[in-house]
Design a protein around this nucleic acid. Structure first.
Length: 673
DNA sequence: CCTACTCTCATTTTT
DNA sequence: TGAGAGTAGG
């Protein structure tokens, strides 16, 4: 017997052993899912399957890396030939290889959401379309159409103004993306799929290459991803998917729970295995979570089974407002840590909406509780970093007009909107790109004019930069030269009002340069193109200057908590309008996808099942909403938890001596006494 | 080109 | 309430 079958429970073992044919593994929270996946791959290798023919797909790079590490620790270098990648990286790999095969041009630049919005902004500006549309709402619609393989002009009839606006922009969007030689995230899935569906020989090649396909978090796949999977695995049917419909929380991003609900119809005779033994949480937590999720109707019926003891009862604390709720959380954490029961790192505070993090942060600071927020604004969203990235993108792809427009007068060099307009008009007239028009500055603007000289010197700067960066030479050195040629440090000094701000901003520049260096050290192909690809595709978290995993409390959204676990979990803001969120209860005109209560309930379930030992729920009777104090009603999800398994602590009823004294303590610490 | 003001808007965010 | 975007005027 393969050694990867021992120390698994019966269902886990079955999931590992079922090697041929379609397989659906419904892996409940904390049921040892990652273990099953890694063991399954190890087992396949053990059976003599070539690593090259195994494809394991995840959604995040973090998950992919984690899996690779675990697998490597099991089978060592035999893990190397296995393709372990995200959907998007696989898509890019396919596009590249096929382009190479047919000697076609490879995709140049990957546009992230910010870039996509930039394209839309550009179009509305050009067309002088009515302002005031929420471009994000338009982009969502375009993205949904793309994921249903609709071309511009094929969009379904609608009288929704946003549908109409989006349909109007869709065509131009596609044209511009093409002109810029750019692809977006949707293209990375849809284009390879089209390729496979169009060309049977091509499809066969990929199907034969990946004889064994494994998909993690299957509940998060969208229709396009399903079609891609079908093209690869539809024939040999060696497709194992792992997921949990109860943890599908990305419907609003286009994920379709129905994929996992009807897997058995999509792949007839699929074997279905339930992993329901939970190794994470105590009985009380599981019981409460089970009750909540049981209220959903469209799901694979199942129930997590406890394998640990009962544990303390779930607690619900009621405070009179949001600030007091945050104060209560801080005070409880303080107590847990001071009595030595817990370390900060054992504790997480989860919330539906980032807005709740604000009061928490204030409280954490005054109570001197070290914390880290997962998610939040990325370091790569910093203006300083984005500007530099735009220079690199332009160097890699002169047709990337978006980047060109971003950097052409940044830092200011006397090329204002008027000049750019003139250049654009000339470029259009002569049917060339904007970048080429730069060469004709004198002709366009007038010989000897200062603006023309500015354009020329910008062009020369770009050519030097491109030369240094593109010949696979020393990328970090080229970046450094760019920074110095731009006189960035001086520029920042000039535009920063305080020294502190300057230090911070310059710090971002330094960090960026370091990230380039690190990439070049690690990569076996340290080219500019590769670096930019990684930047777009790779989880920024892995690139982010790593903060030491200190002993800190974790603050994060419910979405951000998926896949994590903590001994102690606070789940706050259990109120109607927050969880379920108001946006789900009262959809807006701009919403392309109307969220449903079922997904909100799953969100609640995901949060609850993060807790190993203690689950502490809370709600406030009133909360400041946009400056106004508003009465709040308890979340409907609380009703599912039977009163007898809940310890309710209503702090608005009893201001006991204890509470008063702790409030005094609180006050004292705030005043610094 | 920069700054200071006004206006607007307010979920979640794996790639 | 408060952050970020947009705009007018110096």
């Amino acid at each position: 017997m393969s050694r990867w079958l021992t120390d698994l429970n019966q269902q886990q073992r079955q999931a590992v052993e079922t090697v041929e044919g379609p397989l659906l593994v419904l892996a409940g929270a904390g049921s040892g899912k990652t273990r099953v996946i890694t063991h399954r791959i190890a087992h396949l290798l053990e059976l003599g399957v070539a690593g090259e023919s195994i494809l394991a797909m995840t959604f995040t790079n973090k998950a992919a890396n984690e899996m690779r590490e675990r697998l490597a620790s099991m089978v060592g270098s035999r893990a190397n030939p296995v393709t372990l990648s995200t959907f998007h990286s696989l898509g890019l790999l396919m596009l590249r290889e096929e382009a190479r095969r047919s000697r076609r041009r490879q995709p140049f630049t990957i546009f992230d959401t910010g870039d996509q919005l930039g394209v839309l902004r550009e179009i509305t500006r050009q067309r002088r379309l009515e302002q005031g549309y929420d471009l994000g709402a338009i982009l969502t619609r375009i993205s949904n159409w793309k994921n249903s393989f609709m071309a511009p002009g094929e969009t379904p009839p609608s009288d929704d103004p946003y549908d109409l606006a989006a349909a109007e922009l869709f065509g131009r969007y596609a044209e511009l993306m093409h002109a810029y030689r750019a692809v977006d995230f949707d293209d990375l899935i849809c284009e390879p799929t089209r390729m496979l569906e169009r060309d049977e020989g091509c499809r066969r090649r990929w199907a034969e290459r990946f004889r064994y396909v494994l998909v993690d978090e299957y509940q998060d796949t969208n229709p396009a991803q399903l079609r891609l999977l079908f093209s690869i695995a539809g024939e040999h049917r060696n497709l194992a998917v792992v997921g949990d419909d109860d943890q599908s929380i990305y419907g609003w991003r286009g994920a379709d729970v129905r994929n996992i609900l009807r897997f058995e119809q999509d792949f007839p005779q699929a074997k279905v295995i339930y992993l329901m033994r939970n190794y994470r949480s105590v009985g009380t937590v599981l019981d409460a979570a089970n009750r909540v999720i049981a209220q959903n109707t469209e799901r694979h019926p199942k129930r997590l089974q406890a394998s640990r003891g009962a544990g303390p009862r779930v607690r619900l604390t009621i405070t009179s407002d949001g600030e007091l709720e945050a104060a209560h959380v801080a005070r409880t954490i303080r107590e847990m840590v001071d009595t030595g029961r817990r370390r900060y790192a054992d504790i997480a505070v989860l919330y539906r909406s980032n807005i709740l993090a604000r009061d928490l942060e204030t409280e954490m600071r005054t109570s001197r509780i070290p914390y880290r927020m997962v998610g939040g604004t990325s370091y790569y969203d910093r203006k300083e970093v984005k500007d530099l990235v735009a220079y690199l993108k332009l160097a890699a792809n002169p047709r990337d007009e978006l980047s060109l427009r971003r950097v052409i007068n940044n830092p200011p060099r006397g090329i204002g909107p008027k000049t750019v307009e003139q250049l654009t008009a000339w470029a259009e007239e002569h049917g060339v790109g904007l970048y080429e028009a730069l060469d004709h500055a004198e002709e366009i603007i007038g010989p000897g004019e200062r603006r023309a000289l500015a354009v020329r010197s910008f062009k020369e700067l770009m050519e030097r930069t491109t030369r240094r960066m593109s010949q696979r030479s020393d990328l970090p050195a080229a970046t450094e030269e760019l920074v110095s040629e731009l006189n960035l440090q001086e520029e920042l000094r000039r535009s920063s009002e305080s020294d502190k701000v300057l230090q911070r901003r310059w710090g971002f520049v330094i960090q960026f340069q370091q990230s380039v260096e690190r990439f070049c050290e690690r990569s076996d192909k340290p080219t500019l193109r590769e670096y930019l690809t990684q930047l777009a595709l790779l989880d920024m978290a892995t690139e982010r200057p790593e903060e030491a995993p200190d002993n800190q409390v974790t603050l994060c959204t419910l979405h951000g908590s998926k896949g994590l676990e903590f001994p102690v979990v606070f789940l706050i803001g259990l109120e109607e309008g927050l969880l379920p969120h108001d946006r789900t209860l009262n959809p807006q005109a701009t919403d392309a996808v109307i969220g449903d209560i079922a997904e909100e309930r799953r969100l609640c379930y995901v949060g609850m099942t993060r807790a190993m030992d203690e689950l502490l729920l809370s709600r406030a009777k009133a909360r400041r909403v946009r400056g106004r104090l508003q009465e709040r009603t308890p979340s409907r999800f609380l009703e599912a938890i039977p009163a007898e398994s809940l310890d309710v602590d209503d702090q608005t009823l009893t201001a006991s001596a204890d509470d008063v004294s702790s409030m005094m303590d609180d006050l004292r610490s705030k005043l610094g006494w």
